[in-house]
Amino acid sequence: MNPHRRQLLGWGAAAAGAALAPGLRLIELAQARSPQEAASKLQRWGLLIDITKCTDCDVCVTACHEENGVSGHGRPATDAQWIRKVSLRDKRTGYAQTLPLMCQHCEDPPCVDVCPTGASFRRDDGIVLVDKHTCIGCRYCVMACPYGARSVVHEAVSGQKAGVPRGKGTVESCTLCVHRVDRGQTPACVEACNRDGGKAMAFGDLNDPAAEIHRRLKSEPSSQVRADLALNTGVRYQGL
């Protein structure tokens, strides 16, 4: 798609969003790719999370696990979590914060480096995924992830959601709701946060000058978790 058209559509979508209801963004994306169009290197999907707006709620977590069919067996140590709320307290000042943490969709993901079969991979548009067809369940990626973002499916799964395969013995993590993104929707956590939560999360193409996320990252301070590792994460935080 040519960039000019993208931009126009982006503005159109923004206008439509603004017209629908202020603050309620039903349409975040310019447009869905057509099914015949491969994920492109020109894009880099990401999240911007303003944790000053992040409240004690966990609608992002609930929405994610509902959307992706991530259900537990009442065994916290082995149940999968694709996204979790983390509470922070400064060791010296006691300053408390809370934020959602999930796969950070790094540009140089350690999980992808270590995967022996290449099952852990980064799609051209920056989404880090596990190809469960070639995952042998060695869990080396879990060892390598600096964010503790990955889970091992510890027992048989049934009742999977149609677009979200999950199965015993393989590793999984946040997919940035790739099945929704490919349809032109925003990830479930972002949608829920903006509908029922603190409106702290934004989703978009980090490379697209017309995207809100791009503009905010350009004009406002933001940070990466474990920036010292220089992984260039796709998920950025504000107020951290």
């Binding site: 992808v112 480096d113 270590v114 995967c115 022996p116 079969t117 290449g118 099952a119 070639t134 995952c135 042998i136 369940g137 060695c138 869990r139 080396y140 091992v152 499916v153 015993k168 013995g169 393989t170 590793v171």
Partner: peptide
């Protein structure tokens, strides 16, 4: 101990040469 020991053949046919495991 692999999560999917039945897929050992995958480990023998798909390689990521940046992985120390590989």
């Amino acid at each position: 101990d692999l999560g999917r020991p039945d897929r050992l053949i995958v480990a023998m046919t798909h390689y990521n040469f940046k992985s120390i495991f590989a």
